[in-house]
Design a protein around this nucleic acid. Structure first.
Lengths: 152, 152
DNA sequence: AATATTAACGAAAATTTTTCGCCTATGCAT
DNA sequence: ATGCATAGGCGAAAAATTTTCGTTAATATT
């Protein structure tokens, strides 16, 4: 698999706005509509493009509170790890969860309406998962940057 | 602004796959194609839908290393804060940056090729920004969950 | 030199988006 | 109660886009 400069430019454009027409893309890339169409298909089939999604304004859907939450398990047996990961993946408030190096085992990005709801999430959902040793939360004061665009 | 159940279902569908045709959506929602079209337009105009993007497979574009990086500034004057935030936002390796509560001032999500490149990023880019007091990095061992879907 | 392979192209066909005029239900004011 | 405005919905037609198809050119392979 080799991506040439045209592919890279195309990926950049599609990561910014995937609803552009092939005609608009062809103008920027200096290709025919069909050539653009075929390149996009190729990138999809290669699995370079995963999917196409709508991104929402979180404030407009009343989810204005973001927190990062560290979690430490009481033990690191395969069993505990698998169970924790399965349960945490089910929680809709958890947008991201990573197993990380360092003092804690996991870092979670949590999105809820407000502090009230965060408390409910912690008490009624996260800490209900078994085998959690301790947690440590950090609250987002301001979102400085947030992009889904990978530089290729 | 009021979102009814149909709007919420529509947002859920578009967050999963925004390339579905209005016909496919109309089947799920039990509406006409035109009604779906008009609802989507409404959600765009209300600013509920921000944009439509292609999501890439980061491994396929050779960016397999994710790190979270805490940053503490030496001082918190308006001037230092503004400058740091402006500079960090320019860095293509930084996908997310949040001003947070707690021991550190910021948390950054950094995406690069490998540990080698991370080192280069730290030495030649991040720590070149003035007024940084200290940093603390955590490396992602495994991505347990990563979604852009907000539950509405 | 002959032959695959890859990428590109324009035209035509198929499908989708978008516009339009009209209808119905609901809430509000008369 | 009656009239009116608003919001949401609909199908048909028009406009635009996607997708297919047959061909061509360039490059690598045998």
């Amino acid at each position: 698999m080799h991506l040439d400069q045209t592919d890279k430019t195309l990926l950049k454009l599609l990561q910014k706005d995937c609803k552009q027409t092939n005609k608009a893309l062809s103008n920027v890339l200096g290709l025919s509509v069909t050539a653009v169409y075929e390149r996009i298909r190729k990138l999809e089939n290669l699995g370079v493009i995963n999917n196409y999604v709508a991104l929402l304004n979180k404030e407009r859907v009343d989810k204005s509170f973001v927190a990062f939450c560290h979690v430490k398990l009481v033990q690191h047996s395969q069993d505990y790890v698998v169970k924790f990961e399965r349960e945490v993946a089910k929680l809709q408030e958890v947008l991201e969860c990573y197993h990380i190096s360092g003092d804690y085992d996991y870092i979670l990005k949590v999105l809820v309406k407000d502090m009230q709801e965060f408390r409910t999430f912690m008490v009624e959902k996260l800490t209900k998962i078994n085998h959690i040793g301790s947690t440590h939360s950090m609250f987002v004061i301001n979102e400085v940057k947030h992009t889904t665009t990978i530089s290729v």
